[in-house]
Design a protein around this nucleic acid. Structure first.
Ligand SMILES: [Zn+2]
Ligand SMILES: [Zn+2]
Ligand SMILES: [Zn+2]
Ligand SMILES: [Zn+2]
Lengths: 391, 391
DNA sequence: ATTGGTCAACGTTCACC
DNA sequence: GGTGAACGTTGACCAAT
């Protein structure tokens, strides 16, 4: 026994496996203190656990044990085990059987729990796919709400923004490292509805057809939400946004987004994880190192934020509208610029605002430039949303 | 030659006198909020991370846990962990930092591709969550279609079955090893709609309120679909269903479901993969080794399949209906049995059909028994459906 | 001082003779 | 009823935080 473990440590070049000390067959590591094969280990264990009593076949107690004659005499095989130093103390007792793991009765949900219509955690149709609520219906309802439009379209947009903006003070907010899956979905639905609500405060948007409205909402809500979330986050968390990547995901929840994604990517394998991170990193870079930093530097007013949000929407909208609507849209966009001019002149008493406008356009451009990357990620994510759908 | 004393080979007892609060062995500091040994800490962590489900060995839930009987019952060991105050929140989920790999020079899709309303693969709202189509609306439409009911309810059901059944011949069918994610979702939506369509061919079902209809559909479509798919698959593929796990997923697509899942689980890491497979295997066992084999043996007629399908529905429905509807439902179910009797007597000229009925009930029972397990899986799967929703 | 990851070394199961 | 290949579980050890 000493010799065998000695050899094991001294012979790293050894290509031939160390033989079983009992039967000379290829061994499988140390078992019960001796290098043995699995068969001899199992034999030794059974002999003791079952309290077997053996008799020598030849009555001489010296039968040869090797790989071809392993079964010839049990007594001599067991005695060789003891002689080679196998130890009964190493045998454990009374383990819980594997079969008690699954399935069983103690943790199963009751059928009544499953079919109870009042049960919120009802096991079926719990996922988004089979949720009977229709997002379309909710969005249509939002679009149908009539708004009053003043002669200052930018102020109208700001009113919409106020409807959906968060008003927390810094000290009341918890920063989460993990959020559960259902919450993530709810946040996204909230973002879409917020974007829809804000858009209805544009008189131009309301003048379009429902088809056009939906198309614009579909194409812009994602990037719109990021600018909205980042601007509010920077206002409240300041430097922490770009430095620690702390950001709001909803009215009441702020997260450390790096930790959240680390948690989300956990179940993936290494290869897949790297693939996703490769897509994710440039987006994080743009959102936090670029956009958030510029917002932190600019400290935009509420009207400026709304102006930027519209620029984001218009960048996409102008590519899908017909000529007639395009003209109206340009008029509307120009009027927003005029409102902004008045804001600088009358509210802020700024004559030299060119630099602020340039900074705003830089922010919009950063987000626009990576609109495409964001959509690619969404596309990939959708694949995963349906990953387990067959079960 | 009989083993007399068993000793545990734990770390040698040292100086500290404070025992593990779980197993009374020498503790190793505070682990997950409780003074425990390292073994109990590892056990607690594994139980949660791997999603283990235990069952009491003695079924009394009060097994003693100490250093000599630590392994005796895993349920009671785990319960004692919880009782002593060990906290799941303390388990960290990831330590590997997001690798700061260089952003890949990814090819960006054209904007026109993204906002083109005609583009089927439109990048936004492509997933199920943001699909603007409402499943509820489609199901309601199906429920609203009026049917003519004959004096043989079982024949009515069979007519519904014919509407949705596949009619391929063996030689025209491709067996796929992989299917894309969007298809999986479409299949599931198809299954729900098929089940809804079939249910409307029951005069009793049509007499219920919409709320009751939806509840029954929600609770039964999944297990209903599996019986429907399996019975059609067995009819066409015969032995291949239980032996190679070849099964239809839709009218035109048959898959090798083991290979499909192997492909689907590929991006997951080892631990997560094992966790999912552990949940999946007993379901595959029931569906293919048990149900499919019994179907292969029985070779049920079309009317018999419809009778079994209703039994599945009724098993759930009878638990959620009020007393009045319950009586009507029982009448309806009895009439189906009577139709089946006539089918045996007049169509098949069978007087001794007791054995066939017993076999049918065995199939229904197998599916019923594992209804709960299937729902548990769906619940787990839903978590994954929303996994990547933030991106 | 606690936690997670790893893997040798145990235990259990189950065709197979 | 014994055998042993295959697979599940445990916990000592070490790295990470
Ligand atoms: Zn051996
Ligand atoms: Zn002998
Ligand atoms: Zn312990
Ligand atoms: Zn117990």
């Amino acid at each position: 026994m000493v010799a065998s473990s000695f050899q094991h440590h001294l012979e790293p070049m050894l290509t031939q496996p160390i033989p079983c000390q009992i039967c000379t067959y290829q061994s499988h590591g140390v078992n019960f203190n001796v290098m043995t094969c699995r068969a001899c280990a199992a034999f030794f264990r059974r002999s003791l656990v079952c309290g077997m009593r053996y008799h020598c076949k030849t009555r001489k107690n010296d039968c040869r044990i090797d790989s071809t004659e392993r079964h010839f005499c049990r007594l001599c095989r067991f005695q060789k085990c003891l002689q080679m130093g196998m130890k009964a103390e190493k045998i454990q007792q009374n383990r819980d059987p594997i079969s008690s793991t699954f399935p069983g009765t103690s943790t199963e949900p009751e059928l009544s729990e499953i079919v109870d219509p009042e049960n919120e955690k009802s096991y079926i149709f719990h996922g988004t796919l089979y949720g009977f609520k229709s997002l379309l219906a909710e969005v249509r309802y939002i679009f149908s709400i009539s708004r009053n439009y003043s002669d200052s379209p930018l102020t109208d947009l700001e009113n919409g923004f106020k409807l959906i903006t968060r008003h927390q003070k810094r000290r009341y907010i918890d920063i989460e490292d993990r959020i559960n899956f259902q919450n993530l979905t709810d946040f996204r639905l909230g973002h879409i509805k917020n974007c829809a609500t804000w858009l209805t405060h544009s008189s131009f948007f309301q003048s379009l057809t429902e088809t056009e409205n939906l198309l614009i909402l579909k194409s812009t809500w994602h990037v719109w939400s990021w600018l909205e979330l980042l601007s509010v986050s920077v206002e409240i968390f300041g430097n922490q946004v770009c430095e620690e990547k702390i950001v709001f995901l909803s009215e009441k929840i702020a997260v450390d987004i790096v930790k959240v994604f680390r948690y989300i990517l956990k179940p993936l394998n290494k290869q897949e994880k790297r693939k996703v991170e490769k897509e994710l990193n440039p987006i994080f870079h743009i959102l936090f190192d670029d956009v958030a930093r510029k917002l932190q530097n600019l400290k935009p007013s509420s009207l400026e934020i709304n102006y930027m949000l519209w620029q984001l929407v218009w960048f996409v909208a102008e590519k899908v509208l017909n000529e007639d609507n395009l003209r109206h849209g340009e008029q509307y966009t120009n009027q927003l610029a005029s409102d902004l001019h008045n804001h600088y002149k009358n509210d802020l008493h700024l004559e030299q605002y060119a630099q602020r406008v340039l900074k705003m356009m830089a922010i919009v451009k950063s987000l626009q430039k990576h609109l495409m990357n964001i959509h690619k990620i969404i596309d990939y994510a959708d694949n995963f949303c349906n990953l387990f759908a067959m079960k």
